[in-house]
Design a protein around this nucleic acid. Structure first.
Lengths: 109, 109
DNA sequence: CGGTATCCAGGACGATACTG
DNA sequence: CAGTATCGTCCTGGATACCG
């Protein structure tokens, strides 16, 4: 079984904050400052970098409003939206994983 | 929507070769040299490192046979097997993504 | 066969300061 | 507000050689 498709997917969403950004944007568009608040652990530099890569890969749109103060909105492209099943599956697995870890801890008490 | 479960999943399978290793092991156990052949771009060092991390995280088993020449078999744990839906979804999305990229290229000809 | 040990280059990443 | 610029550090990861 060729693993190229798997590698391709990981290359697109495997970045440090990429899946988180995509996840936040599934609820609709967000401004830069809103993303910062949603993902506080990412510095502005990192956030910008990851956003640019997602944009280059065609997963998100970046819309700049030429106003003062500046306003930039990020949203999912059609391709980005198509990732929802992937993110959902990961989210569900992660939820199960974390809750089972909790049970294990309980058993050791 | 809290993104912790998503981050947890990415932390476990987001490593450079981790999803590929897990994917290869879904078909059954493999020896170290077989994994090397399946994933040639990974150096022995990297492969060892990723395998160790997967083992530490409880996703794979490492069974050592005390024979000469040495023999080590890697296989999925129950937890590792439970990742199959995640890997499958990523694989399917990656397949679609790559085939659509091909169509785009055709349109530009 | 299944790794380790060592070295090293380059990139990831954070902290801080600054700007249109 | 939405970044960019600069600096410096840590870590990733490749190359190579070696080992039980």
């Amino acid at each position: 079984m060729d693993h190229t498709p798997l590698a391709a997917t990981i290359n697109l969403i495997g970045g440090k904050y990429k899946s988180l950004i995509l996840w936040k944007l599934t609820n609709g568009l967000l401004r830069f400052s809103e993303l910062r608040r949603e993902i506080p652990c990412a510095t502005p530099k990192m956030l910008t970098q990851q956003l640019r890569e997602l944009e280059t890969d065609g997963l998100i749109n970046r819309k700049v409003y030429p106003v003062v103060p500046p306003k930039v909105e990020y949203s999912l492209t059609t391709l980005g939206k198509s990732l929802k099943p992937v993110l959902d599956t990961m989210y569900i697995w992660g939820t199960d994983y974390l809750s089972n870890k909790g049970i294990e801890n309980k058993n050791t008490l």
